[in-house]
Computed example of a mutant assay.
Amino acid sequence: MDKQMDMLQQALAAYNLIPHCLVIETTMQKHFHGDDHFKIRIGEKAYSARFISGKRYEHDVFLPLTDTILAEQMQFIYFLNDNGIPFMRPVAALSGNAYHKFIWNGAEYRFFLFEWIEGQHITRCSPSVASKMGAMVRQLHTLVADYECSLPKISHREGSRTFLGLLEEAACAAPPECRELLLPYIADAKKHIEHAYKSTREFLMQSDLNPLNILWDDKEQLIGIIDFEHIGYTERVEALAWLVKWYSRAEGLSSHEFSPALAHSLLEGYGAADFMYPEDWERLPSLLWLTGCLNWGFVEKTRRILNQTDSAGPMKMELDAHLSKYSGRGKKLGALITD
Score class of each variant (00 low, 15 high):
A241Q: 01
V129F: 08
H156M: 07
W289S: 05
E177I: 07
S311N: 11
F114A: 05
P260T: 01
Y78D: 15
E25V: 13
R283W: 00
M136T: 10
K45W: 03
L212C: 11
T200G: 13
L243I: 11
P127N: 05
Q120P: 02
G232M: 06
H264P: 04
G54H: 13
P175A: 14
T234I: 13
D82M: 06
I226R: 03
I225A: 02
G330M: 09
M74S: 08
T309W: 07
C149N: 14
P152F: 04
S48V: 02
Q221K: 15
Q4S: 15
L22T: 04
I69K: 10
L288R: 09
P127H: 07
L209A: 08
E257F: 12
M74C: 09
G271A: 03
W289K: 08
L284V: 06
W216Y: 09
I231Q: 02
L70Y: 01
L164C: 04
L215R: 11
N97L: 00
S95I: 04
P64A: 10
Y147H: 01
R124C: 14
E158H: 00
H37R: 11
E202C: 14
A14P: 03
E118I: 01
I85K: 07
I154W: 03
F87N: 05
C293P: 10
K132N: 11
N213C: 05
I77V: 12
L288K: 09
S254T: 11
S126E: 06
W104Y: 13
G34L: 01
S126L: 08
P64K: 09
I24A: 04
L209I: 11
D218F: 02
S155Q: 07
A93N: 00
L288Y: 08
V91A: 00
L63Q: 08
I193K: 02
L143P: 09
A263R: 05
E115I: 01
I52W: 00
C293I: 07
Q308V: 00
L80M: 06
M317Y: 06
P127S: 08
P90G: 00
A98V: 02
D6H: 12
S259H: 08
Y57N: 07
P260G: 04
L183P: 01
N83A: 05
A98L: 11
L63P: 04
C149Q: 02
L267I: 11
Q4N: 15
V137Y: 12
D35A: 15
P90R: 02
A272F: 11
A174H: 03
L212E: 12
R236G: 12
Y47K: 00
I154N: 07
G34N: 02
V137M: 14
L267W: 09
L287A: 03
A170I: 06
N213D: 10
F87H: 13
W242V: 12
V244L: 10
L181M: 05
K325Q: 14
L113E: 00
L333W: 13
S327M: 15
R304Y: 13
N210M: 01
K301C: 05
L181C: 08
P184Q: 10
K30L: 15
L167A: 10
R329L: 14
H141A: 05
P285W: 10
A14H: 03
H256E: 09
R304M: 14
Y47E: 01
A187E: 14
L319A: 14
S254D: 14
L151N: 03
N81D: 09
G43C: 03
P19H: 06
I69N: 09
G330E: 06
C149Y: 04
E257S: 14
A170S: 12
L17A: 07
S265E: 11
I226D: 10
A49Y: 01
E251Q: 13
S324D: 15
